[in-house]
Structure formats: structure tokens, C-alpha cells
Amino acid sequence: MAANSSTVWQRGRVVELRDVARDIRRVVIEPESPVRAAPGTHVDIAVVVNGEQDVRSYSVVESDDDGTRLALSVFRTPTSRGGSVFMHGLGEGAEVELTQPLQNFPLRVGAARYIILAGGIGVTAVLGMARVLARLGADYRFVYAGRSREAMAYLDELIDEHGDRIEVHVDAEGTPLDVPSLVGGLGRDTELYMCGPIRLMDAVRRAWQDFGLDLPNLRYETFGNSGWFDPEEFVVRIPRLGLETVVPKDRSMLEALEAAGADPMFDCRKGECGLCEVEVLELTGDIDHRDVFYSQRQQEASAKMCCCVSRVVTPAATGSRERKPVISIELS
């Protein structure tokens, strides 16, 4: 479901490795086709997990002007699914497959005030933004929270770089971040850019809404909605056309309908515009809504779905996978 059409894969070589905090290793890669990485960009890297190819995303911490050296920083999580183990296993000179920098989290220059909020390893996504704001003389505060100083990458360098503008919160020292007091003190012209653990980001989102701040001013990366359930095969029917086809695990319903000759309307193919909407007539199963077009209320009602990204799954409660789930729809 990678929606970014401009993804360019290339080879790169690991040229520098350095531990920058407990369990956090800085990995500098020289890509074959360098492109400057703006703050907020990430690269996807092909990793091997349990002997199988997979892809992981890592923020670009630093890039030189022409992008010939990209620095990432990888946290080896205790609960790793294997990507960080692979990355920590790389030696100098190792070759990797990676994308050119991808941007889902751009910094907007020109806001009246900024908060840059980093929680733990999330600092990797926002460090470059703070650097640009400092260079431009912008009005910003850099709030950096972590469990302990040893676990906070680049902490000393950032304190040197940002001086009075950085605010450090350390759980182990009894100075944890108080989210409501951070958000409650912000004016309506402040843009907040954050990256950190889901719990921290959820707390900020809730506080943001509680204090009635404008949602477009709260910026964070949405790594694309990968769905609540694993994709499975299902059957789609269009009674009016007397058409029935199977949607395989690795294909979207839109693609299956096109292949079956149903001529569906669509535009963005990433769950944003709503043009591929289909009407749900009958359903044995649940809909895994993966779009951002419908509101939560509309998704719960499940009268319609965006067939470009959303799928049909076996209800978790029944658990039976004997029979494929089936959906009957009408097209526009």
C-alpha cells in the first residue's frame, strides 16, 4: 500500500558507524544517486528479518547539502520485530538497498512560533527541523523528553546547539514532560512538530483538541495507514453487472475490479480523495477501513468504502477462515 509514486530505490554503502546513546547507533550511508534530504524526510531500507525480505523506514537525521552522506540513527528496541537488529548488524562497507529520501513530514517556514517535540528516538525526525529554525532565527522551543540521559541520542550536542531554546525532560531524574502544561501554554499561532512514542503523541493530540487549538498546526508523521488487520483474500460481487471476482491478499479491491473489467472511478489511489467510493449492498465479514476520507462515524456505519485501500476481513470474533469473506457492492 505504499502510496508514494516517486519512490526510487538505489544501492548505498555504509561508511560510518557510531553509538550515540545506549542502544542507538548512528549509521551513515553514501547512496549511489544522492538527493538532498530535507528535514522531516525518511528513507525506506530493505532489511532481512527471520530470513525474509522486509522494509523499514528510518528518519534522515542529517544530510549534507548534496545528499551524498545520509545519517540515520537506529534504536535497537527490546521488542524489535527484527529491523533494528538487522541495522545494528551492519558493518562498515556493507551494501544496502534504500530509497531516495521520502517526505511525509515537511517543515513549513514562516510560522510565528514553533515547538519541536521529541520523545526518545523520535528526535531523529525533528533534529534537522530545529537546526533550520535556529539558522533562520525563528522563534522556536525544542522540547526533548526521554527516559534517561544515557538513552537520549545527541543530547549534549543539542544542548550546545540550542542553548536557552532547548528544554530537556528526563523521567529518571523526576522531570518528566507534562503534556497538558506544554500544550496549554501555547498560542494559536504556534505550530508543533512532534515525533515520539504513540502514547506521547496521543497525549499531545488529546491536549491539542482539549485546548481548542487548530488541528492543522499540529504536525506529525503519518506513516500511511497499514490497516487494523492483515490483508486476506475476499470475494467482491457487483450484482447489477453479474460480476464476481476474488481480491488476492497482495492486490487492492480497485485493482481487482479493474482487472475484472468493472471500470471503477478513482483518482488518488491512496484513500484520500473519496472518488473510488463504492456502496456496500451486502457483507459477510468486516471492513478494514484504511482511508482517511471517511470520518470515524462514516467508517463505523460501513455503508460505503474506499476500494483503493480498504479491504474486507473475516470478523475477529468468529475467527473462522474456512470461507472467504464476501462483499456485494454498487459502483458509481
Partner: peptide, 16 residues
């Protein structure tokens, strides 16, 4: 900032 804050006839805003 140039970010969409409202769209006609739908309950959400296209993030793009």
C-alpha cells in the same frame, strides 16, 4: 500555512 481547513460536502479533510 496553506493547509486546507475545510472541504465541501465531506466530514474529513484530504491531508494532501
Amino acid at each position: 500555512a496553506g493547509r486546507c481547513t475545510s472541504m465541501p460536502a465531506q466530514e474529513t479533510i484530504n491531508p494532501s
